Computed example of a mutant assay.
Amino acid sequence: MLVIALISLGLSSAQDAAVAYGARLYEPPVVRPFEPPSNFGRVTEEGDGGGDPRRRPITRPVAVEAYSGSYEYPPSTADEAYTRGVTQAERTMDARMGPLDGIWRVQDASGATVLSLALMDAGAAKPIEGAWRKDGGIASLGVIERSERSEASVSLAWAGGELTVRPDGPGWTGELLQDGRAVPVTLSR
């Protein structure tokens, strides 16, 4: 009976309906991830690079006392180059994002966390997308349905609430309108 229910769920026409929150189709990233050149890892290292880069297989347990110095081999030049490339690609992508990109806590005047936000701010030309979660008591969550940006402030709205914030020094301050009440809040990471 469970199999029939799962099959009918998979074939239901409700699955063909448009997604309500307007999901975008996949687009390749503007900043490409680190892609090593075709000879990556096969170039002979300069200096003392003539050693054997392969590690001997471990055939029996190794006691801690058997180690002299480090527990691991130092990274090779290829490992370090790959790590630097990935780090640089991440920094380049982060530099392209807007100031509200990331995970935020919305705190009231007493410092209590009222909401948690996960925002994707792809820059001034695109709307801010994200989700919210109400902290404390009965936890509820939802999707940010509307965002508006001006030079002075950013406004995020969802069913039952609206958050308007302004840059203030190193952070953001503003007010949360929820359940008919306006509460002064600050945003922190």
Score class of each variant (00 low, 15 high):
residue 117 L to H: 14
residue 125 A to G: 00
residue 147 S to V: 12
residue 181 R to T: 01
residue 124 A to S: 14
residue 126 K to M: 06
residue 165 V to A: 13
residue 131 A to W: 09
residue 82 Y to D: 10
residue 127 P to L: 12
residue 81 A to Y: 03
residue 94 D to E: 07
residue 127 P to I: 04
residue 178 Q to N: 03
residue 138 I to K: 11
residue 104 W to E: 09
residue 112 A to M: 13
residue 134 K to F: 01
residue 118 A to Q: 12
residue 114 V to H: 04
residue 139 A to N: 12
residue 89 A to T: 08
residue 93 M to D: 12
residue 115 L to N: 03
residue 124 A to N: 15
residue 171 G to S: 13
residue 108 D to Q: 04
residue 185 V to K: 14
residue 144 I to Q: 03
residue 181 R to A: 07
residue 99 P to R: 11
residue 136 G to E: 04
residue 98 G to S: 15
residue 170 P to Y: 05
residue 147 S to M: 14
residue 130 G to Q: 01
residue 145 E to S: 15
residue 140 S to T: 11
residue 90 E to D: 11
residue 153 S to M: 11
residue 92 T to W: 02
residue 143 V to P: 00
residue 158 W to K: 10
residue 131 A to T: 15
residue 152 A to R: 15
residue 85 G to W: 05
residue 95 A to V: 09
residue 160 G to Q: 14
residue 122 A to W: 00
residue 143 V to A: 03
residue 126 K to F: 01
residue 161 G to Q: 09
residue 132 W to N: 03
residue 170 P to S: 03
residue 184 P to G: 05
residue 100 L to Y: 06
residue 106 V to Q: 09
residue 145 E to P: 12
residue 173 T to K: 07
residue 81 A to I: 08
residue 117 L to K: 13
residue 146 R to Y: 00
residue 144 I to P: 07
residue 115 L to H: 04
residue 173 T to Q: 11
residue 104 W to F: 10
residue 126 K to N: 08
residue 150 S to L: 05
residue 172 W to V: 02
residue 172 W to K: 03
residue 86 V to M: 15
residue 184 P to Y: 10
residue 106 V to K: 02
residue 126 K to D: 04
residue 97 M to F: 08
residue 91 R to T: 04
residue 94 D to S: 07
residue 102 G to K: 08
residue 122 A to V: 04
residue 114 V to F: 00
residue 108 D to T: 04
residue 122 A to K: 07
residue 135 D to Q: 09
residue 91 R to L: 05
residue 119 L to Q: 14
residue 169 G to T: 00
residue 89 A to S: 10
residue 179 D to T: 01
residue 134 K to L: 11
residue 137 G to L: 14
residue 156 L to A: 04
residue 167 P to R: 15
residue 81 A to Q: 12
residue 136 G to C: 02
residue 90 E to W: 04
residue 140 S to P: 06
residue 107 Q to I: 11
residue 97 M to N: 03
residue 141 L to K: 12
residue 141 L to G: 14
residue 149 R to I: 13
residue 83 T to H: 03
residue 185 V to Y: 10
residue 158 W to T: 04
residue 101 D to N: 01
residue 97 M to H: 10
residue 86 V to R: 15
residue 87 T to I: 08
residue 115 L to I: 13
residue 129 E to D: 04
residue 113 T to Y: 03
residue 97 M to E: 07
residue 151 E to H: 01
residue 128 I to P: 02
residue 113 T to I: 14
residue 109 A to N: 09
residue 144 I to F: 02
residue 142 G to C: 11
residue 155 S to Y: 11
residue 88 Q to W: 01
residue 159 A to K: 06
residue 152 A to W: 03
residue 88 Q to H: 03
residue 123 G to C: 09
residue 179 D to G: 01
residue 95 A to F: 08
residue 161 G to W: 05
residue 178 Q to F: 14
residue 129 E to F: 02
residue 121 D to G: 11
residue 123 G to L: 08
residue 122 A to D: 08
residue 136 G to V: 06
residue 86 V to W: 13
